[in-house]
Nucleic acid binder design. Structure first.
Lengths: 202, 202
DNA sequence: ACGGCGTTCTTAACAGTGTCAAGATTATGC
DNA sequence: GCATAATCTTGACACTGTTAAGAACGCCGT
């Protein structure tokens, strides 16, 4: 039974077989190849080999499709930094560098994931769940041990610093030469977090 | 002489009189009223009372118009934080708070200003000049005295932290309750910058 | 086995978009 | 005062998201 003909994009009769995931993958591919501007519902449908209105059998609209694409992005980000987060030999800075490399490798996807609610539904259950998972990995490293991650200023500051850096670099607000000084910049937050952690201890 | 008929949007013959700035102001108004999604070239032209293709006499395309709108945004931001930057009694955190309040008051404009190159031309001369001016005000407070602002990790870290915080809040990646703890979060960077500044001194 | 039924997909259409070409209208410089 | 350049309008093209109507298919109960 390895030659199962229904799992992939094989069955191409009138019914596609697994259009939903095929559309999401087409979206990811277009995002990398053509950039965010080249992603239209119709282009995604073309890429998946179906007709313009076919996606509406699986998604309520473009926002819902793009939310699914962004959700996959957060899962990938989580899988990338999970091993680093659980490795005690790694610092917050190491996590940040890996994070930034993900963003630079998938700029369109990253922009979509953290972009405005015009293109994704940030209240989508799957999406916010996936983004929370990725964030909690950061929090494990940057946070006080006992506190809830979402209430702790330490992890939030770390995430904000890394995210802001990525965005300013991507949109050419700061010179690209700063790429080489990223670890140095990230380290500027460490004394503040250490101080804060000390205060927070019982 | 108060009824000067040429300065504002008054002269409405065949020729508008000052369409260029009227279009930019219409763009700003639409951005606040309808959000970024409601801003189309045609809607801007309608709002200014001209026809759909009229903007092409003043802008090469939508990107150029939006770049002009974003440039106005950076000028406003500069004017807002300039007095704080030159006041020695104000800290970096005070600047950051004012910055964040600007973003929260004009979310659509802020998103446009720092958004992707699909909607604005980040290499536009006027635009990058205006954004640099705003940044240098931040750098005056956060930077080492002697160094060029753009090469100094301190100001860049400060800007990144503030910008990332704003973005994550706007796009609902972190809970809105964090709004009240903004000064606390911004303060986490201060020990790192102080340390860095000390190292940098001669 | 087979017939109905709900899901999936297609074609066609609508309103809206950015952009360009041609032409009408007006201001401006000689 | 008139030619010329700048400004604005109308009309069109290709594209977008979305919906309606119906065709093709898989499945489930009999």
């Amino acid at each position: 039974m390895p030659g199962s003909t229904k799992s992939k994009t094989q069955a191409r009769g009138y019914h596609h077989g697994d259009l939903r995931t095929a559309l999401v993958e087409a979206g990811l591919a277009l995002l990398e190849r053509e950039g965010a501007a080249g992603v239209s519902l119709r282009a995604v449908a073309r890429q998946a080999g179906v007709s313009q209105a076919a996606p509406y059998a699986h998604f309520a609209g473009k926002r819902e499709l793009m939310s699914a694409v962004a959700t996959v992005g957060f899962s990938r980000l989580r899988d990338l930094i999970a091993p680093l987060a659980s490795d005690p030999a790694r610092s917050v800075g190491d996590l940040g560098v890996a994070y930034i490399e993900f963003a630079k490798a998938n700029p369109g996807l990253y922009t979509l994931m953290f972009g405005s609610g015009d293109y994704i539904d940030s209240r989508d259950v799957q999406l916010s769940h996936a983004s929370r998972q990725a964030f909690e990995l950061l929090a494990m490293k940057a946070g006080r041990k006992g506190s809830n991650a979402v209430d702790d200023p330490g992890p939030i500051a770390a995430w904000s610093l890394v995210h802001g850096l990525v965005m300013l670099l991507m949109n050419e607000k700061i010179p690209p030469e700063m790429n080489e000084r990223l670890p140095e910049i990230l380290r500027l937050l460490e004394p503040g977090i250490a101080e804060h952690t000390r205060e927070g201890e019982v």
